[in-house]
């Protein structure tokens, strides 16, 4: 058990290195000389050479990677070409906004998914199962950026109930949780929740219907447990896998909210990525991708560890 945890934690090192390498390569798969993207077209040659040396772009690739990595480890994620200032502070505040959105959307999706999936699993092959399953398939098939637009049309344009864009006064939803800010969170959260809700519904349905057909459920009925007593056992048995799927989805929401953030002009990492792509601000693209990917790696680790520790079949072996 301890050996497993240790191995799993150590495995993060090579994975993070490899992830960093992929992010590093992003600059180099971009067409043209990376330097062209950093300077104005009519910059004199000496200046270009100076910039090139400054960024280490005159060195061979492996050396460049090493230098870049060294900077990243020291907290220097590069400098925005457009704004001309370090990426990190902006990235931190954007990550906060994305985190808030991902968590609320995720929570909404997970609760819906667990409830729908649980009901569908218990009443497997009944009409309610078929309806819920169809809803789940629709959920994973929705282009969420379109759903966002539809919600805006209904609740902002027609009903004028909720704001269509932004994160509320001050442009930040990170620390303030009053109605004035929560209003801005509602539509993006719902939009973001749809896909994880569908995925979790399908997972939980499969798990629950599988557990319900197990012998030990018959034993529990034979013991005279009532419905709620049996539900407790089902939940406990389904929990490890469900938590793993939920964790993975949460990580996906963090990294995949770019489309929703674009629709709602939410000031998170997705917006940052979007802007960076438009302005061809490759260092920002690189840094944002790296941070999100590393977050994904860490969250995956946490999910694994939590799953291991709450499942006695694994943890006590």
């Amino acid at each position: 058990m301890i050996a497993y945890i240790l191995r799993r934690v150590l495995y993060i090192v090579p994975i993070s290195l490899a992830v960093s390498l992929v992010c590093f390569m992003l600059v180099h798969i971009a067409p043209g000389d990376p330097i062209d993207a950093m300077v104005q077209p009519d910059t004199p040659k000496e200046v270009i050479d100076r910039v090139r040396a400054e960024y280490g772009l005159d060195q061979p690739l492996p050396v460049q990677f090493g230098l870049w990595l060294l900077k990243v480890v020291q907290g220097d994620f590069g400098t925005s070409l457009i704004k001309g200032r370090p990426v990190l502070p902006d990235l931190i505040s954007a990550s906060g906004a994305t985190f808030v959105l991902a968590c609320t959307g995720g929570l909404l999706g997970f609760v819906t998914g667990c409830v729908f999936g649980g009901i569908a699993g218990v009443y497997r092959d009944s009409w309610i199962d078929r309806v819920l399953l169809a809803v789940a398939v629709a959920g994973v098939s929705v282009p969420h950026y379109w759903l966002g637009m539809v919600l805006v049309i209904i609740f902002s344009v027609n009903l004028n109930m909720l704001p269509a864009m932004g994160a509320g006064p001050g442009g930040s939803a990170v620390s303030i949780f009053d109605w004035e800010h929560i209003r801005y969170l509602i539509l993006p959260s719902i939009t973001l929740a749809v896909i994880p809700a569908g995925i979790v519904t399908r997972t939980v349905r499969g798990l629950v219907s599988d557990i319900m057909s197990q012998d030990y459920i018959t034993t529990l009925r034979g013991k005279g447990l009532r419905r709620h007593g049996i539900v407790g056992h089902v939940v406990r048995n389904a929990a490890p896998t469900t938590l793993a799927v939920i964790g993975l989805q949460l990580a996906n929401l963090m990294g995949g909210s770019i489309l929703v953030e674009t629709v709602f002009a939410w000031p998170g990492t997705g917006m940052m990525l979007n802007t960076a792509i438009f302005q061809r601000d490759i260092p920002v693209l690189q840094a944002t991708t790296l941070v999100l990917a590393l977050f994904f790696v860490v969250l995956n680790l946490l999910v694994d560890l939590v799953q291991t520790s709450i499942d006695p079949r694994i943890s006590r072996r």
Partner: peptide, 24 residues
């Protein structure tokens, strides 16, 4: 449900699958 386990109870063939794996 109040008769089961109290008045009449059952032992199953395969104790591995008939016991809940995640409860002591």
């Amino acid at each position: 449900s109040s008769v089961r386990g109290k008045v009449v109870s059952m032992i199953f063939q395969e104790p591995m699958t008939a016991l809940d794996p995640v409860y002591t």
